[in-house]
Amino acid sequence: MALAREPQRKEYWRWTEYNWRNPDLDWRRAKTITAGVDVGSVSSQAVIMCDGELYAFANMRTGSDSPTSAQRAMDWAMENTGMTLKDVHFTVGTGYGRVNVPFANKAITEIACHARGGNFMYGPTVRTILDMGGQDCKAIHCDEKGKVTSFLMNDKCAAGTGRGMEVFADLLGVSIEDVGELSLQVAEEPEPVSSTCVVFAKTEATGLLRAGWPREKVLAAYCSAMAHRVVSLLERNGVEPDFAITGGIAKNVGVVSRIEKELGIKALKPRYDTQLAGAIGAALFGKALVEKGRR
């Protein structure tokens, strides 16, 4: 007979998926409606913009099938708007799965889209954008128009990525949204974990827990290792202010504040969901292409 056991599984890594619509805009009055769909390795976003203004978006997890994820994100963004794909003048796909967006008119790299989106989200003064995504990390420099002037990408290793943080949330049983705050509740900053590899960092963290470290101290050690790793990536290209962080990790105050401390400069405060940068940039590229076609 199987022993009865309470199910105690909780997915601590799971972040909130949601959609949003701008109640003050009526898409039927818009001249140009464009969409940007960013299919990342971990999350997918669909953004709809009316004449360059944010109208609606959806932010969700990428499934095993990129075309379906793109479609689901887009459907969710359009939910209850009365809008259908036919009403969208131009759709740009971006991100890791950009070639797998079946309804996209064009695919543009996430590097160009993040620069353009960062320019919209943080204003024209932003010069350095650090995108901390699910499975990669990019350092992008751009000009006042949001055009890329240089870029650098790390997608060889999962150190310093969102997925790594998800693994730690699960290990420690701390909700992913609370990791940042909790990691700051230490009296003294511990030594960062020495492994940059997520798998070995997890092994190291298990050892620290066994040695009696409280959860917040282990999280502090991991957040600071992540910050250090990313700063060493940024050093190659230099950091020119204004500086902004996009992607899911930008919501983790534990990592962001440690990056700021190591660099000695503050990151701009986000006014939009930081995960939207790529999709917003893609929609803006779409708008420019539509307007170019009309001229």
């Binding site: 002037t149 240089s150 870029f151 650098l152 790390n154 060889k156 290793c157 990536l233 290209n237």
Partner: peptide
């Protein structure tokens, strides 16, 4: 634009 292709690992900057 300066396009940096490559990576950094234990053996150096590539």
């Amino acid at each position: 634009m300066i396009a940096n292709y490559g990576y950094k690992d234990g053996a150096g900057d590539w």
